[in-house]
Design a protein around this nucleic acid. Structure first.
Lengths: 114, 114
DNA sequence: CATATATTTGCGATAATTCTAAATTACATG
DNA sequence: CATGTAATTTAGAATTATCGCAAATATATG
């Protein structure tokens, strides 16, 4: 494994790490709605604005989200649709990893609510 | 955000966490070759068998890889091709996150070596 | 300036990560 | 059965990360 590759894996791992938190995945999922202000996100998450902002900062430093300022409001959105694709891959991986029909049923039930 | 969703995000985050390590991403990348014995993986990674085995254990507990035993040898492979899809999403996300042409060129150069 | 919206900072507590080295298990074969 | 090969597991140690809260600090607007 050469140095170029190592650096590449390093980058990838940072993206994964940014995504490896339920709260932040929830944020990404909410951002399917499009641009959403921090306060709105916080409300949907049931968390404080401060806390939400901190998670957004993590996502931003991994370049997963971007924000647009309008007045005092910050509208957040994902930086690329590929993030939703990655999200959906996670769903696929978990679905494929399930062993029996009961698990699948249970899982699909939760998906309907999205 | 209801309980069902929280659990779902929890699952997803565990998959992400398993992938959020350069060493393990390297393993996944090597597994594009198909079934690979632990010793062989260790050699390609330039790490000890013990260390490699531990990373494999992490991947296995997240159900990202499976192994088939044949004699004293354990052949590892990914549990679903969706894992490669997720990997490739990471590549896409990073590519999309790059701002200038120089970065893109640099990145593509490293990809040629895969 | 006061208000609304976000961000940042400074903790503190807890828990996770990663590696090495050594012990252990599992299996095949002479 | 003894030995060697392949892999896993355990233990430990050092380092580092995570997460949330509360308070302080921006930033823009009327």
């Amino acid at each position: 494994m050469d140095v170029e590759h190592q650096r590449m894996y390093q980058y990838y791992s940072e993206v994964c790490k940014a995504m490896s938190n339920p709260q932040r995945l929830a944020i990404i999922d909410i951002l399917r709605q499009g641009e959403v202000p921090v306060g709105n996100l916080a409300e949907q998450l049931g968390r404080s604005i401060s806390n939400t902002s901190q998670h957004l900062a993590v996502l931003k430093s991994a370049r997963l989200v971007k924000c647009r300022k309008e007045g005092t409001t910050c509208y957040y959105s994902v930086s690329t649709p590929a993030i939703f694709k990655a999200f959906d891959c996670m769903a696929q991986i978990i679905f494929d990893g399930m062993t029996d029909r009961a698990e699948h049923r249970e899982y699909l039930k939760s998906q309907v609510l999205v």
